[in-house]
Write a protein that binds this DNA or RNA. Structure first.
Lengths: 147, 147
DNA sequence: TCTTTAATTATAATTCTTATAATTAAATAT
DNA sequence: ATATTTAATTATAAGAATTATAATTAAAGA
């Protein structure tokens, strides 16, 4: 069993204790999110699952992503482009985004906790979390540099 | 003359040397952006200026924000919520966002250059820039805590 | 198996943003 | 100061992403 599947099992189990019902569509959406290393849009998910669920509505995808967000197992990311991307909340990592082709790569880096605490002091906010993206050109899009 | 107006003058002057023409609408949009400490949406700007320009089209606001972005004097920020926000590019700062009411406060912090260089090594991207948001509840939205 | 109530579906409606074509106006040359 | 060129504005329509609605279906627990 893969790591992704283990986490999926945990999440499915933890949802059992809530009012939130487990449906085949929900399971499939979660499964797709946990298996994929990409950061799919709602439409990506919809398209990926239309083979298995030919009658599934786009609204179902959106509804469930919202539910997952509310429970805190999924995060919504919006970059410059038109549609939001969705990501399982796992261990802390940041994202490196290609400004040409939009590819997103995970980047592990120790959490910037001191930024949060400083922001808390300076602004008077009660800080919960933060998010960082690093932008550049991926190897495929960058001109080949020699040195 | 305020700091904001000084910067506005500079920008207007620098646009003179390009093909980009200065129009009253453009000037008003820039003025509004430089004066406002908030991070308005396109619609905020449109509404704020409809008194002065009753016939201005929303398209004009969007068009000009795109132009300003291309020239590099304005930055587009997209958070989870529906519409993008726009911000004058000034000195480096980050944003603290209230997850309840959406208020955005600037947060000055030394640029995280080492994050960029590490990301460059780890991912092979040619990194240009990064962006960080810190999320929490603003003083108005946070429950009053006593300690 | 029955009952309750949440989830799904299909569809319409909204919202944000961009495209189009005609008109207007800035900048520059005359 | 006027004419010319060409970019900017306007009004409108179109597009895409997301959300709302109402009827139907199906999970979970009794």
């Amino acid at each position: 069993m893969t790591m992704a599947n283990e986490r999926l099992q945990e999440v499915v189990h933890s949802l059992k204790s809530t009012k939130i019902r487990m449906t085949p569509q929900r399971h499939a959406i979660l499964e797709f999110l946990y298996d994929s290393m990409s950061h799919p849009t709602a439409d990506d998910i919809y398209k990926a699952l239309e083979g298995k669920f030919p009658n599934m509505s786009v609204a179902t995808v959106y509804n469930n992503l919202r539910v997952f967000k509310e429970v805190g197992i999924v995060r919504e990311l919006s970059y410059g482009d038109s549609s939001s991307r969705f990501d399982c909340v796992t261990s802390d990592h940041y994202h490196v985004v290609c400004s040409d082709c939009g590819k997103i790569v995970d980047f592990h880096y120790p959490g910037l906790d001191e930024v949060e605490s400083l922001a808390e002091h300076v602004t008077g906010f009660q800080i919960n979390t933060h998010r960082m993206e690093i932008y550049g050109k991926c190897p495929d899009c960058a001109p080949i540099s020699r040195h």
